[in-house]
């Protein structure tokens, strides 16, 4: 009996890695295939971005600038953020400008815009404008130039049109007319925006970054130089929820979404298993007409997988430690 317990404990300590791999694989794949409802808590760095973007909803003298500094390798984490932010802008009638600095990012911008705009009555050059790919070597001159005159610094959009002739640019001249600038990257490229656009022209900067790089950018968030931050897939999931709860909300009083409120977000849940945007408040379900398509809950489904995987790893760690402790005790006794 004693021997067999010891054997079991020993096994707990030395689980074959292939078993771990299998379990991890399933704990990632199953939540992705079968979405379940989980609670998404919204943190401040994300809600700050939401509030700032939302603060000029419907105002055609302000625009949001999205800067893409990444390629396909970091897409799983960054793409849902971009789609969620674009959806927010399209829902709330906010002008969006996009620019990218790597040739490989150009198709991603197109892809994000095309995915987000389906179902919205938005037009290129009027409601949004893609400035397209600008070489990284020109990033600094363009960044500085935009402080003076965007049309002059950027010149043409991705379709080769002169930016100054576009309707969207009617009231948009430079950073003064920019509500917020969000840089999406797998590194610390937002620092450049802080150094040039913020320090020199006082622009509001936020960053969308992969979870690994979050720790590196924390100091800027602490000082307030970064107004907000999408922290990896979790940030994307939080933003998706914010858009569902506020921007996609429709009622007689707020036909175009309702304003942000900390009180509402803290006790409203949006079940992702439903096909319509549904709010769960105090256990009651309120279903709306708005579609909740897969692309708008991708991050939250991804977070399910991440949660399960994290929990599995924690379980493994605990199992291993239980085994480790008991063996130590048993061994002592036997000795």
């Amino acid at each position: 009996m004693k021997k067999s317990t010891l054997k079991l404990l020993d096994k707990m300590q030395k689980v074959d890695r292939r078993i771990i791999y299998i379990i991890v694989a399933f704990s990632i794949i199953i939540p992705l295939l079968i979405p379940f409802n989980s609670k998404t808590y919204v943190t401040e760095p994300t809600s700050n971005i939401y509030q700032k973007v939302d603060s000029f909803a419907g105002d055609d003298t302000k625009a949001v600038l999205m800067s893409f500094t990444h390629n396909a390798s970091t897409m799983p984490e960054l793409f849902p953020m971009e789609v969620a932010l674009l959806r927010h802008c399209f829902e709330r009638d906010i002008k969006v400008l996009t620019i990218c600095w790597l040739p490989a990012a150009a198709p991603l911008v197109d892809y994000a815009i095309n995915q987000a705009k389906e179902g919205y009555d938005v037009q290129s050059g009027v409601d949004y404008c893609n400035f397209g790919y600008k070489p990284y070597a020109l990033r600094l001159p363009i960044m500085l130039g935009m402080g003076d005159d965007i049309a002059k610094a950027v010149e043409t959009d991705s379709q080769g049109r002169k930016i100054e002739n576009l309707e969207i640019m009617n009231n948009i001249k430079n950073y003064d007319d920019m509500n917020i600038i969000v840089d999406f990257a797998g590194n610390s490229s937002a620092i450049q925006w802080i150094m040039y656009a913020r320090a020199k022209f006082g622009a509001n900067i936020a960053a969308g970054i992969t979870a690994v790089m979050v720790a590196d950018n924390y100091p800027y968030l602490q000082t307030g130089q970064l107004l907000g931050m999408f922290r990896g897939l979790k940030g994307a999931a939080e933003y998706e929820k914010l858009v569902d709860v506020f921007a996609a909300y429709e009622s007689d009083k707020f036909p175009n979404g309702r304003p942000f409120s900390k009180e509402i977000i803290n006790d409203t849940w949006v079940p992702i298993t439903r096909d319509k945007v549904t709010y769960e408040v105090d256990g009651k379900m309120i279903e709306t007409d708005a579609d909740l398509q897969y692309k708008f809950k991708k991050a939250r489904i991804g977070m399910n997988a991440q949660s399960v995987a994290h929990v599995m790893i924690i379980v493994f760690i605990i199992l291993g430690n239980i085994g480790f402790f008991l063996t130590k005790k048993k061994k002592k006794k036997i000795v």
Binding site: Y111, I113, N114, S124, Q159, G160, R161
Partner: peptide
Amino acid sequence: NVKTGSSGDVVYFY
């Protein structure tokens, strides 16, 4: 972009 095609009904070239 092959996947999405041209957005808009007209392509411009200056």
